[in-house]
Design a protein around this nucleic acid. Structure first.
Lengths: 256, 256
DNA sequence: TAGATTGTTAATCGATTAACAATC
DNA sequence: TAGATTGTTAATCGATTAACAATC
């Protein structure tokens, strides 16, 4: 093409950052590529081929090249991709050049663990506030943060510029918390409560439901069992497992 | 694997349980329908229309009818679906008529929370064993279960008929744990470690990565910000949020 | 019968993939 | 130049959706 444009890439001042409107499936895979690239960087790799990165991320190489081509043209034919450049580019697109502040609501069993999860800090986020509706829990200190009452949310949101709300309350409380988050201007919510949330247009909600993941696996267990239970039907069942290793496609399925 | 008979689907006594090969997108939504149906049953509803159930599950009604039609024909035209019958049918298809035993490996921060998560027990699963490679943690009691050393896995798997393995170890340990699970015959794995696992064909892996969920939200935050940063472009931006509520489509996206 | 709602069709949309020309 | 690998094309596959005939 004419030249390598870095649309609003790090270092570009002035121009409006024209963020490409990526397919959702691509967006969901970029973080996986990013993680693989960080691993490669740590082990001293300066370039990587689409084949190599695809293996590290558990996808096929055509899909990887297609995904990366949506960001622009950052590879070199005959050589591969520059690991550092690609990290910068993906981090830029994902909006990770700023460390976003997260408010975690609900400091029960799961919320407690999330508050202590260092994977958030190491991958671009800062847990800026812990909130709970239970006065019993207010004042408790977890990982250097003091739990505050949910009614403090308006003040906290303003002070900390909360960008993302994480809901780890029981299902019965989740909608009310979502409403409160929306009311203070939060437009991105990660919901761990097993319920559907209603939010206005323009607010993004992602849901993680641990029991649902197990139920999906249960279906496949059930299905595999029903196949091996048909011995008369002959050859084509899954009974004989080949010894070779392969990355199962289902590993990509989450978060899509 | 085929140690005992599946209770036949309602209405199909005697016949081989011919489990339909459902589209993955449908499988991923069935647990959400099931949860919504349980809510309806608890609030005294005996029947529900596709419109009503679709609202409760956060999907559109055409999709819901299409999904349910894959299971067979369990609705009544002009009336709707029988809540109890549909619960039985979905639970059968998902293999939830037996309570599956789960082994949880890695009892650190997150694993601790998972061990105490009552959503597993209430939705068809039994945490049958807690395992860890760290001798310091062996012997600790969590929620009535004593943490055992990972080397006990072969014995535990045989004694408890483990159907699903949950990996909540650091990334560096996850592949080795997966190999150990596969070696004792586990064919379904839920992986919370931020890494790709290699497993033989026939083994299903699902991955939950909390930081990836935040990074996907971060992309959308970044994108929304880049849109509102274009004031000259006039009318069509997302700045003016309509007051009406709507269930965002992105809520369905996980686990697909 | 009249009204309601399912189950199915068919059009459309989006995602995946193999293949290969472009090009380093 | 010869070999390697990207970026793109086009075919295919799977998922979504509106519309409506079937039917309770």
């Amino acid at each position: 093409m004419s030249q390598h444009r870095h649309p609003g890439a790090p270092g570009r001042a002035g121009a409006v950052p024209a963020l490409p409107d990526l397919p959702e499936a691509t967006v969901a895979r970029l973080p996986e590529y990013l993680r693989a690239l960080h691993n490669l960087a740590e082990t001293g790799h300066e370039t990587v081929s689409s084949e190599g990165l695809a293996n590290a991320a558990g996808v096929n190489s055509a899909k990887l090249r297609k995904d990366l081509s949506q960001l622009g043209s950052y590879g070199t034919r005959g050589v591969g991709y520059d690991v550092g450049l690609l990290i910068d580019q993906i981090e830029y697109v994902l909006g990770l050049t700023q460390r976003r502040a997260v408010a975690l609501v609900g400091v029960g069993n799961l919320g407690h663990a999330l508050a202590g999860y260092d994977g958030f800090a190491s991958r671009g986020f800062r847990i800026a506030a812990l909130l709970d509706a239970d006065q019993e829990r207010v004042g408790e200190e977890i990982n250097g943060l003091v739990v505050q009452h949910i009614d403090e949310l308006p003040r906290v949101a303003a002070e900390e510029s909360i960008a993302i709300g994480v809901i780890a309350t029981p299902a019965a409380a989740a909608q009310r918390v979502a409403d409160q988050l929306v009311a203070v201007g939060v437009t991105s919510i990660l919901n761990f409560a097993p319920c559907v949330l209603s939010v206005p247009e323009g607010v993004d909600v992602r849901k993680v439901d641990l029991a649902i993941e197990l139920q999906i696996l249960s279906f496949h267990e059930h299905r595999k069992a029903s196949l091996t239970a048909l011995p008369a039907a002959g050859g084509s069942a899954l009974t004989a497992l080949p010894g070779g290793l392969a990355v199962t496609e289902s590993q990509e399925a989450i978060g899509t």
